[in-house]
Design a binder for these strands. Structure first.
Lengths: 152, 152
DNA sequence: TCTAAATAGGACCACGTTGTCCAGTATTGG
DNA sequence: CCAATACTGGACAACGTGGTCCTATTTAGA
């Protein structure tokens, strides 16, 4: 239902949000998120174009969030890499349906709207703050770990 | 978000449900639903394997619903051609997440669950019965038309 | 200034989905 | 039995997504 690219983008953003201070390089993020690094670089480029991250070249460079995690929603991330296509006009091109969709497409669009709304109301910060047995991207069960594996 | 195949399958099922008595041939359905007929035949085969429609060969053959429209849900149709993949285990394969997903994947799966639930609670009959300005697959605005274009 | 680190971005390939075409087979009617 | 109808199913082409690789460019620091 969601594309691989969306999954990757969300992982990368969670990774960045979990250590907001230091820039993280493509390969660091790739290691933490288990995303193929060459492909991750494409995804990060899309996120950069959408102004969600900022990439800094050169030694000590890497990526940082372009805004505080509390101000970035899941929907923004999804929209940056693979926007949810709402159904706005009849897919059959029937004149009579135009903007007022028939019950079938109305139902489908309602489902899309629900997803959109759920994603719009969830920020990166909320994801990281949520109490849980497990922490995003982190392989040890208990809390108190900084959500990302600390590099050796 | 939803695949083309899902869209086609739903159209075909609505088409069949709108005239439950007579079998409709592939090309009739294709014309009504504006789906490429060669591809529609693949979709109908999937629906047949899922026991949602029954195909009858030979003269006067065609497809009919295998169950009453009131007993077929949108979810069944979607599942037949392109099942919604719920997130059941951590996509990163992290041991600690196992069944108890981290907040990120929990959120994503909740969105999937919402869609699933919306589709599970909607039947074909409900789609056709719903009052609306426009009728599925039908290009004239007012009700009282049988939801499918009557053949000349 | 030179080198190493790191992003930016283009070219390219593999694969699944979508879509087409064609031969095979069942069914009805004459 | 014959012919027309219509589903069944396999082979194959077009296309977009996911994924790899290689080169150019920027930047920090010795």
């Amino acid at each position: 239902m969601f594309t691989q690219t969306v999954e990757y983008a969300l992982r990368a953003m969670v990774c960045l949000a979990s250590r907001p201070e230091v820039p993280q390089s493509n390969s660091q993020i790739a290691a933490t998120t288990k995303v193929p690094s060459a492909y991750l670089s494409k995804v990060l480029q899309k996120l950069a174009k959408a102004q969600l991250v900022h990439g800094q070249r050169g030694v000590q460079g890497g990526f940082v969030l372009a805004q505080p995690a509390a101000e970035i929603t899941i929907l923004q991330i999804v929209s940056a890499v693979d926007p949810i296509q709402r159904i706005r006009t009849c897919p059959l091109g029937l004149e009579a349906h135009g903007v007022r969709l028939c019950p079938l497409h109305r139902k489908m669009d309602q489902a899309l709207a629900q997803v959109e709304s759920a994603f719009a109301s969830t920020t990166l910060a909320a994801i990281l703050a949520e109490p849980s047995d497990s922490v995003p991207l982190c392989d040890f069960p208990r809390p108190r770990c900084a959500a990302a594996v600390s590099p050796g």
